[in-house]
Simulated scan of single mutants.
Amino acid sequence: MTEKHGGLHSETRISMADGTRKRLAQVENGDEVLGTDRGIRVVSTQVSEVHCAGPGASWTKLSGRRLRAGRGSSFFSLISSPEHRVWSPGPDTYTPVGEYSPSQRVTLLRSEHDLTPCQRSVLLGKLLGDGHLHKARSGSASVVWGHRQADEEYVRWTLRALGDLASTTTRTLTSGYGSTIITARSTFHPSVAECFGEMTASGKKRVTPWIADYLDPLALAFWYMDDGSLCHTEGQEDRATLSTCGFDEDDCRVLLKGLRRLGIAGTLMRDGRGYLTIRLNSAAAECLFLLVAPYVPPVMQRKLPGRYRGHNGWLPPTGERQFRPQLVPQLVEQVESNVQSKRSAWRTSSRYAITTGTHNLFANGLLVHDST
């Protein structure tokens, strides 16, 4: 049994998982919307029920200035029944709209759902390496990867690098060779599909031309840790290879172009089994080591020459996102009770409530309870 607490105006715009907004009256069971998990991170969540509670007898309006929350209007507002609950950061609780007062805070979703530069580079590196793209019906996507159990710390390192885009769930699987594999993934996010969807549009992972311009040291580090090898032979300088057996020659030409941008001159060759591989002579390999070493954690430093080992690795500070945070606190400046719209349709508009998997959603950008 569920009990409904309040409702939202039918004209309210709901943030969908594909990055669009849809009128509340048009949302249907099975739709994917954006909500937050228990860690207050933005995630995709499915609508399990849309409930129409009939015409609203009374409406309350919250409004205020919209600051540092991306492109769009300079103001935010929400019209709902007085008992509908809105997330209040600070006390970390849901508060009925009718109990709000000016100067209290609400949580607003940034209009752009962009990845940070760090997240984009890490995911690019994983997709060039061992990762694959998992697309959802909602239009969002996730990057999934796995490594042998001995390299579990590398799995954790990748999750740390993704910050608030990292899923908290890892799985242990047995490979076809009988070894134990630790798998992890990013959360589903519309920008993951937008950035990387073209790489798998053909049904096979490809290296699209834009990658040559976006390959940077951080992406290169994760690609090298996944698919790179240190070639160390006594009496010779250190060299390196990058396995590209999953790509064709056109893909490899894009990768070579990207490496040249970074000052690394690679040579495309075939290994003893006939697979394509990019080989780096000692000078090119030294350029590679110099660029990627800062981002390589101890568990993967076996892929670096001894002179580049012995440090803890570096990543941008973890925790709450500082660059363009997805959730932005805003101050309520006005609370209007018994709102009467100039449009008669609004005065008689039905109240709607939505049930979601996370029991919350974003209405006109504000984080609200799903009223169940």
Rank of each mutant, 00 (worst) to 15 (best):
E112V: 08
G176V: 05
Q119A: 15
L78D: 03
P329V: 05
T356Q: 11
G70W: 10
L67Q: 15
T2N: 12
L291Y: 07
L162C: 12
P55G: 01
D227V: 00
S74D: 15
R148V: 13
D227E: 07
H113M: 08
S48F: 09
S350P: 08
P316R: 10
S186Q: 10
A219S: 15
W223K: 06
S44T: 14
G72C: 11
S229L: 07
L262I: 05
Y224F: 14
D227C: 06
L290R: 14
R309C: 13
L109P: 06
R23Y: 10
L8K: 08
D37N: 14
P91I: 00
G30Q: 05
L24P: 04
R105G: 04
M300E: 13
R148C: 10
A201N: 04
T12H: 04
S349Q: 06
D92T: 08
C245G: 13
L127H: 07
M199E: 02
T355N: 09
W87H: 02
Q340T: 13
L115W: 01
Y214A: 12
Y308C: 03
H189C: 01
H113E: 07
W346R: 14
T244W: 01
R206Y: 05
M1S: 14
F222Y: 15
E49C: 02
L259A: 09
W346V: 12
P102K: 01
H311C: 03
G90S: 07
R253Y: 05
F222E: 09
V296T: 15
A69N: 15
L268K: 07
Y295S: 09
S142W: 05
D271L: 07
G19I: 01
G56E: 06
V368T: 11
Q301W: 06
A201Y: 00
T183Y: 01
S88D: 00
A193G: 13
F289D: 08
E320Q: 12
R71N: 14
D248I: 01
T244Q: 05
P209C: 00
Y295K: 03
C52S: 15
P82L: 02
Q236F: 11
P190V: 04
C195L: 04
L159A: 04
P298Y: 08
L109S: 07
R270P: 10
V43Y: 12
L361N: 06
N338A: 13
S371Y: 00
S44A: 15
R66I: 02
D92C: 06
T95R: 15
R160H: 13
G203A: 05
G176P: 02
S10C: 10
T93F: 09
L24G: 03
E286W: 01
G163Y: 00
S15N: 08
R65G: 10
K204Q: 15
M300D: 07
W314A: 12
G306H: 13
S80N: 07
S80R: 03
